[in-house]
């Protein structure tokens, strides 16, 4: 493999560039995927049948905690990529580790939130509104879960193999994925939670 040293490691080979471009395009498809889930949610959000409505079940505190956890994790993974570019493997690994822990925290709060809903009698089967809500949140949560596994695998590879064009490329692509999940969350935060509590 030809390595071009004038570029950051993650872009340094032809294959790496292809992978980064391919992943960006995949994120384009993900935008449409989440848009469709939003479309379904918006269409059904008023149809709560005999179940609770949005304003009856949403609570600000857990949502704010989730938002802050995810925004911070997005910040730390950004720092991780910055550390990677200045060649500091140790700092990079630390930041990635913090990111994954924050992601885990987010997931914990989200699961608690789901359990609370179910205890309040708001299940996925109760009404079309709740089906839409759980599916939208669940898809995002499933992405975060997958991200934790994936990020963990990459962290392990960086530890074992150091910062090579290959591991740097994987780390960078993972950071794109993570930032993207943060963007999706911002829209969930604004147009699901805040709009629902308006």
């Amino acid at each position: 493999m030809k390595i071009d040293h004038s570029l950051p490691l993650e872009y340094s080979t032809e294959e790496n560039k292809l992978k980064i471009l391919g992943f960006w395009i995949f994120l384009g498809a993900e935008i449409v995927l989440f848009s469709t889930l939003f479309a379904v949610y918006f269409t059904l959000q008023g149809n709560f049948a005999d179940g609770p409505s949005a304003s009856q079940i949403f609570e600000l505190t857990p949502v704010m905690i989730e938002t802050i956890l995810l925004l911070t994790s997005s910040f730390t993974i950004g720092l991780g990529i910055h550390a990677m570019r200045i060649g500091s493997k140790k700092a990079m690994m630390t930041f990635f580790g913090i990111t994954l822990l924050l992601g885990l925290g987010f997931l914990g709060v989200e699961i608690t939130e789901f359990v609370t809903y179910v205890h309040e009698g708001a299940t996925m089967q109760t009404s079309a509104f709740l089906s839409g809500l759980f599916t939208l949140l669940g898809t995002h949560g499933a992405h975060v879960t997958f991200g934790l596994l994936w990020g963990g695998a990459i962290l392990y590879q960086v530890k074992k193999r150091g910062l090579t064009p290959e591991t740097a490329n994987k780390s960078f692509i993972f950071s794109l994925y993570w930032h993207f999940l943060d963007v999706v969350w911002i829209f969930i935060f604004s147009f699901v939670y805040l709009k629902g509590m308006m």
Binding site: V40, N47, A49, A128, S131, G132, T135
Partner: peptide
């Protein structure tokens, strides 16, 4: 058992 396309419970 979700209600997205059901004819009751708010499905469409």
């Amino acid at each position: 058992g979700t209600q997205f396309f059901a004819m009751q419970n708010g499905g469409m």
